[in-house]
């Protein structure tokens, strides 16, 4: 038997979009960081069928120990089976902390597990740390990202959080790393499949240019017209940037739905964000919490977007866009 004493931090192994969404690896890195303060072991928990390659990946990215349930009945992500398994493992092994990636599945799965364990869960965290009493302090956006709430679960265990993808940096792949693998048999009598998955087809890979862009230029209704909005593409081309849009812009047909940034569209995390003629409604700004340096252009200095910006330019958006194009042409030497 291996050493089973000491507390554990668990990370749910969400591998369904392994190459597009590295949130599990990001959580393993964060868990490593948290584990130092409470001398816990970092554990990945993986369910599925034929999942050895992911087990190896998690070992190479920071897991000390990996709980594996490998069974044909778990081939597809199935909520009833996955929740029941996670509940059972948590009851048997009492982890201190359970972290789940904020994917669509994670955000359906984690609340159910938390409910069964009657413990607290903070959703969509963007920052985590351990305080001096050893408690996990979780920061999550509220009111569309204009406010941050700092939340703890003091008395119940495990302390649970779903975490927004892209918030933490994964550890480099370490070929030398070895993890303890604990294989667990699936339950002899699995729970009834109350929600049946009839079909589950991967959609042709969606374009992630906007999500991964280093510079994003977002345009809102303040660009005035389709022709005005088109100017942003010219600017974007000069900068090697991607163009994002608010909902009214998409509804008016100035930009494609693919460009929509916000609650109903994409989350972005550019190093530099330019925002032209955008008011800053929470459904839009909710998707900007990962942006680095923000430059907003608006006629109205009191627009929320201007308050959120590092640099607020009070001017006509179209004129600023044209002037930037001119200025950049001067500055960029071929």
């Amino acid at each position: 038997m291996n050493d089973e004493t000491g507390s554990e931090i668990w990370v749910f192994g969400d591998y369904r979009n392994y190459f597009q969404n590295r949130v599990t690896l990001q959580l393993l890195a964060k868990a490593r960081d948290l584990s130092r303060k409470i001398s816990a072991r970092v554990c990945a928990v993986v369910f599925g069928c034929g999942i050895d390659e992911y087990v190896a990946e998690y070992a190479a990215h920071g897991a000390d120990k990996i709980y594996v349930v490998d069974h044909p009945g778990l081939e597809r992500y199935q909520i009833d089976a996955y929740v029941a398994l996670m509940e059972r493992l948590c009851r048997e092994r009492s982890p201190e902390i359970v972290l789940v990636g904020g994917t669509g599945f994670g955000r359906e799965f984690a609340p159910r597990v938390a409910k069964r364990l009657k413990t607290g869960l903070t959703s969509d965290c963007i920052e985590l740390y351990i305080d001096d009493e050893g408690i996990l302090v979780q920061t999550a956006p509220a009111f569309g990202g204009n406010l941050m709430a700092v939340i703890v679960t003091r008395d119940r265990r495990p302390q649970m959080a779903t975490v927004r993808p892209g918030m933490f940096q994964e550890l480099p792949h370490d070929y030398e790393a070895r993890a303890q693998i604990v294989r667990i048999d699936p339950p002899a009598d699995p729970p009834p499949e109350r929600l049946r998955v009839i079909r589950s087809d991967r959609r042709p890979q969606t374009d992630r240019k906007l999500e991964d862009a280093r510079i994003v230029i977002c345009g809102g209704r303040g660009m005035g017209s389709k022709a005005g909005f088109r100017k942003l593409f010219e600017l974007a081309q000069l900068m090697g940037a991607e163009v994002g849009a608010t909902r009214p812009v998409v509804y008016s047909g100035w930009a494609n739905h693919d460009a929509l940034v916000g609650q109903a569209g994409k989350q972005i995390k550019p190093m530099v964000l330019f925002s032209f003629g955008v008011s800053g409604a929470i459904q839009h700004t909710a998707a900007l919490t990962g942006a680095g340096f923000v430059i907003a252009v608006n006629k109205n200095p009191d627009a929320v977007m201007m308050k959120m910006a590092d640099v607020a330019v009070v001017a006509d958006a179209k004129q600023v866009c044209s002037a930037m194009i001119k200025e950049l042409r001067k500055r960029i030497r071929p």
């Binding site: 413990t119 956006p141 406010l147 941050m148 700092v150 703890v152 003091r154 008395d155």
Partner: peptide, 13 residues
């Protein structure tokens, strides 16, 4: 009946 507690709320703006 709530296991979570809000310690602080701050404005990002």
């Amino acid at each position: 009946a709530s296991p979570t507690r809000i310690l602080d709320v701050y404005s990002t703006t």
